[in-house]
């Protein structure tokens, strides 16, 4: 394990406090009030102790030579006047490195800063891996720190709410099943005014394509649905949308490492595809 190479001070409060403009977010500010070191330790170790993750956590930490080549890959670093605290290696140092070194025994305030770093100062774009001479997967590491934060509920409010919605409804924006179908029927009627006999086939078994929009489209951007219907019809594509949950391709769980909701979203789409015997899944993005 990497303990030999991370043998600096492990005092609970001995950590670098970043001097950043505050981010006001109830997902951080309110959640942190209910955290304890014990809860954090349990969450961190629940992720660190997963056998299959051990090597993937430790190998990059052991391999990294702190060359800082990753810095110039990072748009956070570049857009903050090359502030070294935004360098990918620094983000690992200030989060995962410390959590491993302290075996998860950290204060709620420390964990709040960790959450800010991994959610608000890194997009997990993986560009740093392209610059790294070893190709170290820094985004994987910071992603797993997001997982620790997720288990604690220490997640930005907006994306957590959308993931809650996906968990409860398999839609991004709390869309009822009826509203989804009604919206598809309504949009078909709207487009029919422009193109004769345009259809938005719902639950058409055997269609070539199943289109899975983002929840934002039926919720706030129905014109996207109309445009998709026009394109599909004019192009002569045999298409459909699914009536059952599992039509929304937004997968916010992936971003916050809510792996379970992430899997349920993907499974929902594939279940619909297999139920309807369609040949291709087309997603909005």
């Amino acid at each position: 394990m990497a303990e030999a190479s991370v043998k600096e001070s492990t005092k609970t409060e001995d950590w670098v406090k970043l001097n950043r403009k505050p981010v006001a977010d109830p997902g951080f500010d309110e959640t942190v009030k209910n955290l304890t070191t014990e809860k954090i330790e349990k969450a961190v170790n629940a992720v660190l102790n997963i056998g299959k993750n051990g090597a993937r956590f430790m190998a990059p930490l052991e391999t990294c030579i702190h060359c800082a080549l990753c810095s110039n890959a990072c748009h956070w670093y570049l857009s903050h006047d090359k502030d070294p605290t935004y360098a990918p290696v620094a983000k690992v140092k200030m989060t995962l490195w410390e959590l491993i070194k302290r075996k998860g025994k950290v204060s709620p305030e420390f964990m709040k800063q960790v959450a800010r770093i991994v959610f608000c100062e890194c997009n997990l774009c993986r560009r740093c891996s392209m610059y790294c001479p070893f190709g170290l997967d820094i985004a994987f590491q910071l992603g797993m720190v997001r997982r620790m934060c997720f288990i604690l509920g220490l997640v930005p409010q907006n994306i957590l709410d959308q993931t809650h919605s996906l968990s409860a409804t398999l839609t991004q924006l709390w869309i009822t099943q009826g509203d989804w179908i009604d919206t598809m029927q309504w949009q078909e009627e709207e487009v029919r005014g422009e193109i004769k006999n345009v259809r938005i086939p719902i639950d058409k078994e055997g269609a070539e394509v199943m289109w899975c929009p983002l929840g934002t489209e039926p919720k706030v951007a129905t014109y996207h649905i109309a445009r998709t219907a026009k394109i599909m019809n004019v192009a002569g594509i045999d298409w459909t949308v699914a009536a059952q949950d599992g039509w929304d391709s937004a997968n916010m769980g992936m971003f916050i490492r809510d792996m379970e909701t992430m899997q349920r979203v993907v499974r929902g789409i594939y279940d619909n595809a297999m139920r309807l015997k369609i040949k291709r899944i087309v997603l909005t993005e």
Binding site: P26, G27, E30, G153, Q157, N158, D161, H164, A168
Partner: peptide, 19 residues
């Protein structure tokens, strides 16, 4: 069923269990 109302972005009411 969702048995209790929840305000927009109210992540904490959801975490009390409303389904």
């Amino acid at each position: 069923i969702q048995i209790q109302p929840m305000k927009t972005l109210d992540i904490f009411t959801y975490q009390k269990g409303i389904w």
